Computed example of a mutant assay.
Amino acid sequence: MNAINPAEGLGRFLTLADTAEVLSVSPHEVLDLVRSGELPAIKVGSKGQWRIENSVLESYIEALYEETRRMSLWNQSDIAAVTEVNFGEQRTR
């Protein structure tokens, strides 16, 4: 494995254990991500073992970085402190 793309030397498809190693989480956590649909994966072979494509994992990681970046920008913005926005709708009591 290398520092630029740790999954590069593992081949096109990664096992749950390989993916867990790249993400520094447990294989069970990876399985939870797969089952929830957050991390796309396929079942292969007669036993239906999960495999995550290397490029899909890299896209997933990039999306997490983007989500973190956007949340950081949101939290730094003035509008993050606004609790409710009223667009001219009047409530009757």
Rank of each mutant, 00 (worst) to 15 (best):
V85Y: 15
L73V: 10
A3N: 08
P6Q: 08
E58G: 08
G88E: 09
E38L: 02
P27C: 08
K47I: 10
L31N: 13
E62D: 13
E29M: 11
V85S: 13
E67K: 15
N2V: 06
A3C: 10
Y60W: 13
V44P: 01
A7C: 10
A7F: 01
G45I: 05
E67R: 14
S59H: 06
E29F: 00
S36F: 02
S24L: 10
W74V: 03
L39K: 10
L73P: 05
A7G: 00
Y65W: 03
T68C: 06
A7S: 13
E38A: 10
L33H: 00
L57Q: 07
R69V: 07
V85Q: 14
E84D: 06
N75I: 01
E67C: 11
E21V: 02
S26P: 03
Q90P: 04
E66T: 03
P6F: 01
S46F: 13
K43C: 05
G11C: 05
D18W: 00
T92F: 03
I61N: 11
L64S: 05
H28N: 03
E8G: 01
I61G: 06
G88P: 07
I61C: 04
G9I: 14
M1N: 08
I4Y: 11
F13T: 05
V34Y: 10
E53W: 08
G9V: 09
E66D: 12
V22K: 09
S55C: 12
T68S: 06
V34F: 07
T83H: 12
T68E: 09
E84P: 00
V22T: 02
D18M: 06
D78Y: 13
A3Q: 15
A3M: 11
I42Q: 13
P6S: 13
P6R: 07
E53T: 00
D18V: 01
N2E: 03
L23A: 04
S55I: 09
A17V: 07
E62A: 14
Y60H: 09
A17I: 12
S55L: 14
E8C: 12
R12M: 12
G88T: 04
W50K: 02
L73C: 08
D78K: 09
M71D: 14
A7K: 01
S77R: 06
L23P: 11
A3S: 12
S59L: 06
G88A: 04
I52W: 00
R91Q: 14
L10V: 14
A20G: 12
V25N: 02
V22P: 05
Y60I: 07
